[in-house]
Amino acid sequence: MSGVHIEGSEPIVALIGLGLGIYFFFAGFRELKSKRIIQNIPTSKINTGAVGTNVEVTGRIVCEKDQIVHAPISGRPCAFYSIEIQRWERNRSHRGSSLGSHNSRTGFNRGRWVTVESFNSGKGFFIDDRSGANAMVLVNGAIIKRKGGTRDYELQSNNFDQMPAGLRQALESNQKKLRKFKLKNTSWLFSNRFRFREWHFSVGEKIFVLGHADSGLRTPKRNTLKFKTFLRAKKVIQENDKLKSRFDTNQDGKLDEAELERGAKIIAQQLEAKYSKEKLEDLASKTKLIFKQKKPNPFYISNMSEKDLIKDLATWSTLKIWGGPILTTGCAAYLFVLFFP
C-alpha cells in the first residue's frame, strides 16, 4: 500500500459498503422485475384459472375448524405460522462502527441477531376467492411480503425451561427438523441469548398469491399417529369384546398392556386412514389450483393488496437502484482517499 499504514475497522466497513452497494444495485433490478411481473399478470379466478402457468389470485384464507393452530408466542388462533430462531452474536472487534439497524446494536452490547433455524406450522394453507373453488398454497420457497409486525420472545439458553408452554411445545414437536438448535438448558457460563420471532396468517385474512399453479391434490401420507386417535382406539378395543379376543395373542383371556397397545396402533392407523381419505376427497373436490415453488417462476405471497405490494416494490427498487451506486461510489472514494492520500 505504498507505505501507508492504516488502522481501525473503517476500511473494512468501507469495503463492505462497496460490496453492499453493488448488491443493492442488482437486488433493486430484481425487485423492479418482480414489480413488473405483478403488474403484467391480471388477476384470475381460482375456479377458472389456467393451470401450468403463472397465475395471480387474491382470496381469503380458509381453514377447517380442526386445522386451526395457535401461534406459539402470541397464542392467537391462525391458519399458518412461522417461527424464526435467532441467536445473538457479539462482534469480536473492539472498535465499533456507526452502522446500526433493527438487527444490530452498537456500543457495549455490540452484535447482531443471526437466524439459525426456522419452521412453519405446516406446509401451507387454503384460500378462497368465492369463485366456487379454493387454492392450496404451499409456502416453501415463496417470497413472503407482509404488512403487520412480528411477535418476538427473547431469553437466555440457561432459562429455556421458563419459556411459554406453547412455544416449548412447538419447538419440541419440530425438534427433528431443527439441526442447528437444541432445546436444552445450558449452564449460565455458556449461555447464549436467543430470540424467537413469530408471524402468522389468520383465518379470513386477505391474501395475494402469484406463482406457478398446478392441478391435482396429493397429500403426504402420515407416518405418525395422533395421540388422541391412539387413545380413542384403545378405548374402542376395551369396550368391544370381539376386538379384545382378536388382539389377545396369547389367548389367556386377558388383554395385557402390550397387546392393547399393539391393537390400538392397528385400529388408530385404520381410523386415521379413513379420516385422511375423507379429508382428501373433501379438499380435492374444492381445490382447483395448487401454488408451489417452481423455478425460475416467481412466487409471491402477501397480505398486502396488489396496489400496496407494487408500491412497496417500486419504493425499494428505486431506493436500491439509486442508493446502491451512491454507497459504492462513496465507499470507493473514501478508500481512494485513504490509500492514495
Binding site: 444495485f25 446502491g324 451506486p325 459504492t328 461510489t329 470507493a332 472514494a333 481512494f336 482517499v337
Partner: peptide, 15 residues
Amino acid sequence: TGILIFLGIVLFGAL
C-alpha cells in the same frame, strides 16, 4: 477523488 466519483456515476449510470 472527483474523477473517481465522476467515473463511478458514469459507470453506474450506464449500467
